[in-house]
Nucleic acid binder design. Sequence first.
DNA 1: TAGATTGTTAATCGATTAACAATC
DNA 2: TAGATTGTTAATCGATTAACAATC
Lengths: 235, 235
Amino acid sequence: MTPSDMMNPSETTTDTEAVQPKQKTCSDVSPAVINRLPRYFRYLREFLRQDILRISSGELSAMMNVTASQIRQDLNCFGGFGQQGYGYNVKYLYGKISDILGVSANFHAIVVGAGNLGRAITGSNMFEHRNIDLIGIFDVSPAVIGQTISGLSVQSTDRLEDFAKDHKIDIAILTVPKEEARSAAARLSAIGVKGIWNFASTELDLQSCGVLVENAHMGDSLMKLMYEINRSEQG
Amino acid sequence: MTPSDMMNPSETTTDTEAVQPKQKTCSDVSPAVINRLPRYFRYLREFLRQDILRISSGELSAMMNVTASQIRQDLNCFGGFGQQGYGYNVKYLYGKISDILGVSANFHAIVVGAGNLGRAITGSNMFEHRNIDLIGIFDVSPAVIGQTISGLSVQSTDRLEDFAKDHKIDIAILTVPKEEARSAAARLSAIGVKGIWNFASTELDLQSCGVLVENAHMGDSLMKLMYEINRSEQG
DNA sequence: TAGATTGTTAATCGATTAACAATC
DNA sequence: TAGATTGTTAATCGATTAACAATC
């Protein structure tokens, strides 16, 4: 087998129970690594688009401004995805990282809060790229309920519980005002949502309920930029 | 002086040249600390709203789920803002953190890209909270130019250079499609913008031009949530 | 004064980098 | 085979935590 023929380096190992698969279970991957995975995903997607078949940690390192060592270390938390002397097969690695990031899981999501931000998110192409089905959008305002946003009719938030009976909801995207965020989150937790993507600039503190929360505090990001500008101007 | 009288602990030191001020210049604060500053800012703002005058690192620690040690360590990168036996004066500390984060600098910002996300951001209360003046919004689409969004009339992107002659622009908020992001960023760099808040899901790589870039890759945040859900289901 | 809590140093822990043997 | 590049271990670096003297 020449390197360029390689599609899946792992498949070269014999597939018996006795052979310890290269795939690690690595139950606790460090947060620092997880933070970097989406960025690898983005680069790989772009390589795929450009028909780049193969990439080495050295090449990727130059493009991404991280060390080659770190790239190899990161990827090895999940298994040996590369091949010595060759590098990484882009298509194969992209597939593996997609699996790790749950792109293959076909999650279902709803948007709660059909304000400007909720609409912007609903209308983005973010979901098709990640194999997420956006299956509902909810709001409390009678003026908004019934409107169609990106092909979805806005439902009353009162219907959440009923809706959950008929649909698996993996992710709730929370774009309600800060004041309503906590009570909305409690309801979402009650209907069995697995994760909340929180845009309300307040902490949710639901981890105890077994609901995963990812905070998208946009204002925090803005403040980091403000800090850097301020610092560059006055040391 | 009783603790509750204290407004500014630093001002109790005599103000001569000889006395080394408690305020540190600490030219290089670690990124980990900077990442936490906006969160402190949010909590302090909330305390202020609730008329809480005083907070100790221990109390804050319990609320924020970080160690008291870390809080004291973080704050001490910038100076001694507390008082032994008392804790931190909320108003004073909030002021100090506001200064550090550039809230006192009264930055001017423009939005480039008046799509759904640009509109959502323009309409948010994010800017008043941070003492930022939103002074312009730009788009290329003739259908959008001239529309009023949150009191601002959308201008043609062609007018950027002219606009920059008459206005100081500190921050450009980039919400154009991915494909146009790099060229837009180059123009913004050329007109002397100090920082770009980048919502396009592509890397900008302008650091060489002296323009600071803060990436707000929302999709990366979503993927971290996907990872956690995926992991919790089949970890 | 006694009690409380900071500021700060030292110890621990985790993450990154360097180096190189394994191997394609 | 020789060259290239991974996977992995060891060394370095940085960040967090623990502890306590300083002090309000």
